[in-house]
Amino acid sequence: HMTFVALYDYVASGETDLSFKKGERLQIVNNTEGDWALAHSLTTGRTGYIPSNYVAPSD
């Protein structure tokens, strides 16, 4: 899985969403939902949907 870094803070709007903080590292599990991606946080160990425009690929 590619690793991504959060560009902004995001507060989950539902139970299936994943909250994260700017700078948090995430792995995209499934990116077939258009503007949303299923992601796993390497920081918190949690998995949920995130807005895909809130993250960018990290080196």
Rank of each mutant, 00 (worst) to 15 (best):
H1D: 10
H1I: 13
H1Y: 14
H1W: 14
M2L: 12
M2W: 11
M2F: 12
T3E: 11
T3P: 06
T3F: 13
F4K: 03
F4E: 00
F4A: 05
F4H: 07
V5N: 03
V5G: 00
V5W: 06
V5D: 03
A6H: 00
A6P: 01
A6S: 05
A6C: 09
A6F: 02
A6E: 00
L7H: 04
L7T: 06
L7Q: 07
L7N: 04
Y8W: 12
D9V: 02
D9Q: 03
Y10V: 02
Y10C: 03
Y10M: 02
Y10H: 05
Y10K: 01
Y10T: 00
Y10L: 02
Y10F: 08
V11T: 12
V11H: 09
V11C: 11
A12F: 03
A12Q: 05
A12C: 06
A12N: 04
A12I: 03
A12Y: 02
A12D: 02
A12L: 03
S13F: 10
S13C: 14
S13W: 09
S13H: 11
S13E: 11
G14H: 10
G14W: 07
G14I: 08
G14D: 08
G14N: 13
E15S: 12
E15N: 10
E15F: 09
T16N: 14
T16W: 15
D17Q: 15
D17F: 15
D17H: 14
D17I: 09
D17K: 11
D17Y: 14
D17L: 11
L18N: 03
L18A: 06
L18K: 02
L18H: 02
L18G: 02
L18V: 07
L18D: 01
S19G: 08
S19M: 07
S19Y: 04
S19V: 06
F20A: 02
F20T: 02
F20M: 07
K21C: 11
K21E: 07
K21Y: 07
K21F: 09
K21S: 10
K21V: 09
K21L: 09
K21M: 09
K22G: 03
K22L: 04
K22W: 03
G23M: 02
G23R: 01
E24D: 11
E24Y: 05
E24G: 02
E24A: 01
R25A: 08
R25P: 07
R25M: 14
R25T: 12
L26S: 00
L26T: 00
L26E: 00
L26A: 00
Q27M: 14
Q27S: 08
Q27P: 00
Q27L: 15
Q27D: 05
Q27K: 11
I28C: 06
I28K: 03
I28Y: 05
I28L: 11
V29E: 08
V29K: 08
N30T: 14
N30F: 14
N30S: 14
N30H: 12
N30K: 13
N31M: 14
N31E: 10
N31D: 10
N31S: 11
T32S: 11
T32D: 10
T32Q: 10
E33F: 14
E33S: 13
E33Y: 13
E33R: 11
E33A: 12
G34P: 07
G34E: 07
G34M: 06
G34A: 07
D35V: 11
D35P: 14
D35K: 12
D35R: 12
D35S: 10
D35W: 09
D35F: 13
D35I: 11
W36G: 02
W36D: 01
W36M: 08
W36F: 08
W36N: 03
W36R: 08
W36L: 06
A37H: 09
A37T: 12
A37R: 09
A37C: 14
A37E: 04
L38P: 01
L38C: 14
L38A: 02
L38V: 05
L38F: 12
A39W: 03
A39D: 00
A39M: 05
A39G: 04
H40K: 14
H40P: 00
H40S: 07
H40E: 07
H40Y: 14
S41Y: 00
S41T: 01
S41W: 02
S41R: 01
S41C: 02
L42K: 04
L42Y: 06
L42D: 03
L42A: 04
L42W: 06
L42N: 03
L42S: 04
L42V: 07
T43V: 11
T43P: 02
T43C: 13
T43F: 06
T43H: 08
T43K: 09
T43W: 07
T44P: 01
T44H: 02
T44L: 03
T44M: 02
T44K: 02
G45M: 05
G45V: 01
G45R: 04
R46T: 04
R46W: 06
R46C: 09
R46F: 08
R46K: 12
R46L: 11
R46Y: 07
T47Y: 10
T47A: 06
T47Q: 07
T47D: 05
T47F: 10
T47G: 05
G48P: 00
G48M: 02
G48F: 05
G48W: 02
G48Y: 04
G48A: 04
G48E: 01
Y49F: 11
Y49C: 11
Y49E: 03
I50A: 02
I50F: 02
I50Y: 01
I50C: 02
P51L: 05
P51Q: 04
P51E: 01
P51S: 03
S52E: 04
S52T: 14
S52W: 15
S52R: 15
S52A: 12
S52M: 15
N53D: 09
N53C: 14
N53H: 13
N53E: 09
N53S: 14
N53R: 14
N53F: 11
Y54M: 12
Y54F: 12
Y54L: 12
Y54S: 09
Y54G: 05
Y54P: 02
Y54D: 01
V55M: 07
V55S: 04
V55D: 03
V55L: 11
A56F: 10
A56I: 14
A56P: 10
A56E: 09
A56Y: 10
P57M: 11
P57T: 09
P57L: 13
P57C: 11
P57D: 07
S58G: 09
S58Q: 13
S58I: 15
D59Y: 13
D59S: 11
D59H: 12
D59L: 13
D59Q: 12
D59C: 14
